[in-house]
């Protein structure tokens, strides 16, 4: 019998969809009992949000001092402690989950299975290596498993009609050697890149920060999130949180339209689960066309205004 504990990620107000995707992955293990653990200094309200996730039995609501709940040092020991009652501990493969889960694994004396993309059975999973150029099937012979769930590989589980029981806990961890200072965020009004159904993405072909306005305007026109290639972020055309690819965000929107992106392998890794990939580039030989469902060779500075008019 599998008992699965999932680390819930949140921003203080809402539960991150990566959590619901981890629930979807957990449901694929036969007969699994699924619980969540959520940490916050104001845990009652976020625990209510967590309890609305369908298919969750119990939410462990761990009251944790201000800012400590954002830090691996503040919460990993408590997760490892709760894990004694579970066969599996999952976290979303977001920067939050990637930071914390290996600490949990180390505390439990285990290797972590990173970025699960497919569940074969309770102890066997598939995950990508070499930037997605190969896929391995991994089996864990141990009694316990710690893993992160590649969010682009799983659908979002229902987040509104659940009714999990909330169980309260304290977190007596008073570590003070890691201190949260601040989070600088673009605070975009646009949909969240990681979970948006549509994404408009720009690359080096945009040529400047000013020209990136074209991407923002087109995104707003069709209600899309905005993304970028590493080259565009490195060139300073847009902020780092827009980067899509091996070391940026791995996304799976229904529609991914990219402009002026040649399609480096590191970028393709981040989009290969997208429903429909549309590529617009002036170089028809670009590798992006190898993965595009619809390709148009042309000057983006002419194509985008025409799209603004016709979409």
């Amino acid at each position: 019998m599998s008992k699965i504990l999932i680390l819930a990620q949140h921003d203080g107000v809402a539960i991150n969809q990566g959590t619901a995707k981890a629930v979807t992955a957990a449901k694929q293990i036969d007969g699994a009992i699924i619980d969540l653990v959520v940490f916050s200094d104001n845990v009652d309200s976020i625990a209510v949000e967590a309890s609305k996730l369908s298919d969750v039995n119990t939410v462990h609501a761990v009251s944790t001092p201000t800012d400590q709940w954002k830090l691996a040092a503040g919460i990993a020991p408590k997760i490892a402690e709760l894990a004694s009652n579970y066969t599996h501990v999952f976290g979303p493969s977001t920067t939050f989950g990637k930071d914390i889960m290996p600490c949990v694994a180390a505390l439990m004396g285990l290797n972590q299975i990173s970025d699960i993309m497919q569940v074969i059975d309770a102890k066997t999973f598939k995950r990508p290596i070499y930037a997605g150029n190969a896929v391995i099937t991994v089996n864990a012979p141990q009694d316990k498993i710690v893993a992160t769930i590649r969010t682009a590989s799983f659908k979002t589980n229902d987040m509104t009609s659940g009714s999990a029981t909330v169980e309260n806990h304290d977190n007596n961890n008073d570590q003070n050697e890691t201190r949260f200072i601040e989070l600088q965020s673009g605070n975009s009004e646009r949909p969240d890149l990681q979970t948006a159904a549509k994404v408009i993405s720009g690359g080096r072909g945009l040529g400047s920060e000013e020209n990136f306005e074209l991407m923002y305007n087109l995104a707003d026109k069709i209600g899309a999130a905005t993304g970028a290639s590493r080259a565009a972020v490195d060139a300073g055309y847009c902020p780092n949180e827009m980067q899509v690819g091996q070391t940026g965000k791995i996304i799976a929107p229904d529609l991914y339209m990219c402009f002026g992106i040649s399609g480096a392998i590191q970028h393709l890794t981040g989009i290969k689960d997208a429903g429909t990939i549309v590529a617009i580039n002036k170089d028809g030989e670009s590798p992006i066309y190898e993965v595009a469902d619809i390709g148009l060779v042309g000057d983006l500075f002419k194509v985008v205004p025409e799209l603004m008019e016709k979409l």
């Binding site: 190969a134 896929v135 391995i136 099937t137 429909t276 990939i277 066309y289 619809i294 060779v297």
Partner: peptide
């Protein structure tokens, strides 16, 4: 240690199509 049972190539995406104009692209979308 975890045991790696198998290595395989990723599933390739199906071959896409090329369009000639924005009109064609918009109507496909």
């Amino acid at each position: 240690e975890l045991s790696i049972q198998k290595y395989e190539s990723p599933q390739p995406r199906e071959k896409g199509i090329m369009v000639e104009s924005v009109d064609e692209l918009v109507s496909l979308l």
